[in-house]
Computed example of a mutant assay.
Amino acid sequence: MEQINTILTDLLGPAGPLLAVGALGIVLIVVTVPFLLRKTEDPIEKLRKARESGSKSGQKVDLRVASGSDKLERYSAFLEPQDADEYSAVQLKLLQAGYPGKNAVRTFHFAQFALGIGLLIFGIFLTILKTANGQELTTTARMLWILIPGVAGYMLPKYWVTRRVETRKEEITNGFPDALDMMLTCVEAGQSLDQSILRVSKEIRASYPALADEFSIVSNEMKAGKDRVQVLRDLSERSGVPDVASFVTVMIQSATFGTSIADALRVYAGEMRDKRVMRAEEKANTLPTKMTLATMMLTVPPLLIILIGPSVYDIYLTLKSVRF
């Protein structure tokens, strides 16, 4: 600092340091003023302009403005199905698997292509490695070593989603009778259907998280003001479980004809309990048939060895002695 002070004094005189500080302050003010005077555009005004430009060009403008943080947005035309029916079918399957995100379809197709290409490259590397080790492979074998990993990688996300759908449906089916009993208790205690659904979703989350998530979505949509009939129909479509679809039909009919929700829940909850007992009895009845095959495979071969083995060995010794 003393050297800088000396240099400024020699160049500008005794007031050199003061002049340098003043010049630096002026420069900082000149640089800062444009940022302070720049007016931030009002989000409502920005949305209005976007809607006006979209209406003039004939395009639909969503209320949610994309933040640009999704790295796959630029590849949406390649990763997402362009057919509306195909897109809806994939989106519904992902919803039933428990992936409700708005980018779930895009991520699913990206996982398919990424795994397919990655395992295809792995198959090529494996084929090159086998050839380098001196192992001769025919053209068919090389094609199989290259294509099978790629096809497996491409089909792996679809298999995972299918298994998730089946597991989730089974969980919802197993937990639905208990949820109906708790819902009936809440309704009879004086709570409304919305409050009972919210309470049940909190109580069953530890045992049946998939069903709790569905009930939470229903509760939030009802709080947001969505039509109750449409909310219940969306629940039936998302779950894909026949028991939930029947429950939705009962609730819609009860609201349409003005009957008591508690009475409808009581009757339907009893039917669900009986249906669960019937499912358990059905599995118990199929158990002996499944055990028969395992019992035969595990007991008959050792039994034959124990009973016939000594005789076969004696016959072998007799034939050996006769031969010599």
Rank of each mutant, 00 (worst) to 15 (best):
L72K: 03
V312T: 07
S88D: 13
T167V: 07
K102Y: 08
D178Y: 06
A23T: 10
A77Y: 04
V322R: 13
S311V: 14
K130V: 15
L37P: 01
V187Y: 03
L11G: 01
L307G: 03
P302Q: 08
R168S: 05
R168G: 03
A114N: 04
F35V: 08
I197W: 06
A189Q: 04
E214R: 02
I29Q: 04
G309I: 05
Q96M: 15
K275W: 04
G118Q: 07
S67A: 13
R323T: 13
G13S: 03
I44D: 05
G54M: 12
E45V: 15
L235Y: 03
K60N: 04
S67H: 11
F257H: 10
V31C: 10
A23I: 15
S53T: 08
N285D: 10
A141E: 09
W145T: 11
S254D: 01
L265K: 03
L298A: 12
T162A: 13
M278G: 05
Y99S: 13
G190Q: 05
G116E: 01
E73K: 13
R266F: 08
T40D: 13
S53P: 00
Q96Y: 03
A210N: 02
A97W: 00
F247A: 11
T138L: 06
A189R: 07
F324H: 11
Y159V: 14
S254L: 10
R164H: 01
R279N: 04
S246Y: 08
V30Y: 06
E86Y: 11
V161W: 00
D10L: 14
A114E: 01
L137T: 01
K56L: 14
R48I: 14
E221S: 10
L319M: 11
S216H: 10
G309C: 03
M222T: 10
T162W: 09
K283L: 13
P81F: 08
A294M: 15
I146C: 07
P302A: 12
P157I: 07
V250T: 06
T249N: 06
T286Q: 12
A294F: 15
S69Q: 13
T6Q: 09
T140L: 15
K275M: 08
I7Y: 10
R51T: 10
R106Q: 11
L28K: 04
V151P: 02
V165C: 06
Y208V: 00
S246M: 14
V250P: 02
T127Y: 02
L72H: 01
T138K: 05
F215S: 02
L144G: 07
V231R: 02
R228H: 06
I29V: 15
F113T: 08
D10S: 12
